[in-house]
């Protein structure tokens, strides 16, 4: 079946995922449109990270995952990445046996139109100074920037970002927020997993609320001012 609405970049229907014997996702439905920044909100263990991992093919999954009309649900991770999907994992995944430059250059170019190293250094000036350091000697914020920077080079234009603000100082969160804003302006489509609701609410177009492996609510940016909606969100997120 071809996706008739061509602006929907990602459409997921009935996504189930498993870690060994434990069934983690029970039918996630969501979509992301071209140029949109969408967040997945929810408590710890709700299934947000697993949703990203399932999209990337890093966990055992069942269900329909369509990206630009193509079926991703049976492909291995390296073929999924080749559609132009860049992934920043929750644990950042900086390689300790590689220095900063090697980490930055590691992901291969998958599409033309990626950012140049100069553009990346303009976005994240700290990285330039640390180019020769071993990857894991960086501070948490620098590691996070590196994790994002390295997928911008590859030409990926759909980003899966997992908890990019976790454990970081407000100043750094601010910087990352600005960077994400710039990426959105450049036309990147972004699916962001976030626990930090104030951060998410400032930058995202839409929010999905995930609970017990299902999407239980969807809120557009404009509805956040509605007191009823805000209360509903608070009850889901427990904030």
């Amino acid at each position: 079946m071809l996706d008739t609405h061509c602006e929907k970049r990602l459409r997921i229907e009935g996504l189930n995922a498993f870690y060994g014997d434990s069934h983690v996702l029970h039918g996630i439905d969501l979509h992301v449109e071209r140029g949109e920044l969408v967040t997945l909100l929810g408590r710890n263990g709700a299934g947000k990270t697993t949703t990203l991992r399932a999209i990337m093919g890093l966990v055992e999954r069942r269900g329909d995952i369509r990206f630009d009309g193509a079926d991703l649900s049976r492909l291995p991770p390296h073929k999924i990445a080749r559609f132009g999907i860049g992934y920043v994992p929750e644990e950042r995944g900086i390689f300790s046996s590689l220095d900063v430059t090697e980490n930055l250059l590691l992901p291969p170019t998958i599409k033309p139109g990626g950012m140049t190293i100069e553009e990346i250094y303009t976005l994240f000036p700290n990285l330039k100074e640390r180019a020769g350091s071993q990857g894991t000697k960086l501070s948490g914020g620098e590691q996070q920037m590196l994790a994002m920077a390295r997928i911008l080079r590859t030409g990926a234009d759909f980003l899966l970002l997992d908890e990019v603000t976790e454990g970081l100082a407000p100043v750094i969160i601010e910087q990352i927020g600005i960077a994400i804003g710039l990426l959105k302006e450049r036309g990147f489509t972004i699916l962001l997993v976030e626990q930090n609701f104030p951060f998410a609410s400032r930058i995202a177009d839409r929010h999905y609320v995930v609970e017990n492996g299902r999407v239980v609510d969807m809120v557009a940016k404009d509805d956040l001012n509605d007191p009823g909606v805000a209360e509903r969100l608070h009850s889901f997120l427990g904030v």
Binding site: P76, H78, A81, P89, F95, L106, I151
Partner: peptide, 15 residues
């Protein structure tokens, strides 16, 4: 070296 550390992530980069 990267795949020795974290093969899944390297694969998620398209390798």
């Amino acid at each position: 070296r990267a795949a020795t550390e974290n093969p899944k992530l390297v694969q998620a980069f398209g390798i």
